[in-house]
Design a protein around this nucleic acid. Structure first.
Lengths: 327, 327
DNA sequence: GCGAATTCTGCTCATATGAGCATTCATTTC
DNA sequence: GAAATGAATGCTCATATGAGCAGAATTCGC
């Protein structure tokens, strides 16, 4: 009884017969696969070029022609693109993990390191001053670096003396410099110091001042983000229980280069700045390229907070984080 | 202008980094999936439209973008197209059989009927005079016919009284006419008669003359082809052993509308013409559209012979036959 | 180092293509 | 039967695109 039951309206659903299907497919092959022009096709089939255009349009719409964009499987171009647009990034890379690795944070971090190494090989140019923060992600980056333009490498923060693996912080920096055949400026000092005076003194130490003095000339920085919880942030782990609670109350949910941010990306602990040995947020904001590495959904909110600072123009992350960032 | 940020061209090794991959994918998506123009994409990514064009070109070449043409699975557009070009046909439809059906001739024939029904629904127009030959293929066609323009339906040959199923010959014609809401002209007589006189007499019989007199006005004919062997041709089965051998010696390898053809498509038994009740080859050659139905590789050579007559401008067949026709 | 070969880039200009419109044709609706 | 509706077709004209070329940059070979 409805209007659509009328035989003619069925023409909208238009059930194409085999002849039409075959001809449409032939035209599609000519156009998409053989690269013929629509005008040539029109001549071959005795149609107007407009008819050809409309037929091909319909063929794509009806799925007769499938246009598929697929990256080498380990990268998710769709999420990358969405993030890039959403957060106005210049670089946005979302990598995929095989299902069996998705639950193994170490595996995910390794993948992150590998992808980041590729990115650096691509975007670092001769005479760049490359700054690397510390973090498990940077540790994973080190061994993956195999190609890099001639550049200097500067360590952007001190190490946390709590874990033996921290040697890798410096190791990654050295490795990068070695690959880059350029000078290296490591920081052999703790990240968090008891007071501003000590920090200030260390900043002037030979061997450290060489790195620190370059913080305002970094051209490309690679930064990680920590979440406000045990094992998720070097600063968190280094603070006393009272301090942790204090900053929690102030809304700290992310740690970037030793600075604590709330969900809006505001620095909630400016006074800490004097006690840490790391590139400042101001210096970062002067750095032309700042890449944020973030893996693991546990760091999703922290990553969102970090992005809100507007400091970052690049992001490398996994699909899990990417999906939360877009939700 | 943007000469300052030229990426490190270590890309000579053909090894694009993740950034390039992701950006290329994003551009490909814009162009192929979102329908943006290359100029728009160039603006968005800050590139020249030429760069965009070259990047997309490379993306297609390297398989990053897959352009796939695929028919609803039961039709083979590639073979169809190849046959169409090779034999200069206006209609060429090659259907695929599921592997489990490929060895069951009855199934293949059923598929042929179904596809042909679709083709007829497409190409038959009001006031056409549709001619149907007899054959198992036509039997299979009958039940599949569901849509047809208003046209007359003429049976193009007599039946072979050897098998009870032959009733279906007339049945298919009736069914077609019923779907077409038009007049029907069946032939209630045998295909092969003992002599020319009997045949001539029958041709003038009321009820038969109505059909026969229309043989020279058919606008669209559907013809099957038989091979020269037992069970593969109605004429073969109706002849005596001596006659069979005689015609075999003359090179008969195909039977079309009761006429015997050699491998070159020549009529090797003109004298039979007077003894059969079927549309003549001359009349067929005057018919604007003649569709040949051929299924089963056993009929491959016969089909090739039939096509060599130049009588046919349409072909419906299965992948097996199509491949042999192209070999 | 210094040319030579190669690649990459953006340009011009001819061609291909798309958006929108007018016409035709078929069908519906009163 | 006449008017209205709607789909299909082909046109004009502005825009998008490709082929081929010249200059710039890069790499190569000595």
């Amino acid at each position: 009884m409805s209007a659509q039951d009328k035989p003619n309206r069925g023409a909208r659903a238009h059930h194409p017969g085999p002849e039409e299907l075959v001809q449409t497919a032939a035209m599609a092959r000519r156009f998409y696969l053989e690269g013929k022009s629509k005008i040539e096709i029109a001549e071959e089939f005795g149609l107007s070029r407009f008819k050809v255009a409309r037929t091909l349009e319909a063929a794509v719409r009806d799925g007769l022609v499938r246009l598929e964009v697929r990256l080498p499987a380990e990268l998710d171009d769709e999420l990358s693109d969405a993030l890039r647009t959403r957060y106005g990034l210049s670089h946005s890379i979302v990598f995929r993990c095989r299902p069996e690795d998705a639950d193994d944070p170490a595996q995910v971090t390794r993948r992150l390191g590998s992808v980041t190494a590729g990115l650096l090989a691509e975007i670092v140019m001769d005479d760049d001053i490359l700054g690397l923060i510390w973090g498990p992600e940077i540790e994973a980056l080190g061994p993956e670096l195999t190609t890099l333009a001639r550049c200097s490498v500067v360590q952007l923060c001190g190490v946390t003396p709590l874990r033996p693996v921290d040697a890798n912080a410096v190791e990654a920096v050295r490795r990068a410099a070695s690959v880059a055949r350029g000078p290296v400026y490591p920081v052999y000092a703790p990240l968090l110091l008891p007071d501003a005076a000590t920090a200030g003194m260390l900043r002037r130490q030979p061997g450290i001042v060489e790195a620190v003095s370059r913080f305002d000339r970094i051209t490309k920085a690679v930064i990680t983000v920590g979440a406000w919880g045990p094992g998720l942030s070097t600063v968190y782990d280094a603070l006393s229980a009272a301090e942790r609670e204090e900053y929690r109350l102030r809304g700290a949910c992310a740690e970037v280069s030793g600075h604590l941010l709330d969900a809006e990306g505001r620095d909630v602990a400016p006074e800490l700045t004097e006690r840490i040995l790391a590139i400042s947020l101001d210096e970062l904001s002067e750095t032309p390229e700042v890449i944020l590495l973030a893996d693991g959904v546990v760091r999703s909110e922290a990553t969102a907070a970090a992005l809100r600072t507007g400091l970052f123009n690049g992001l490398v992350t996994d699909t899990g984080v990417a999906e939360r960032l877009l939700a």
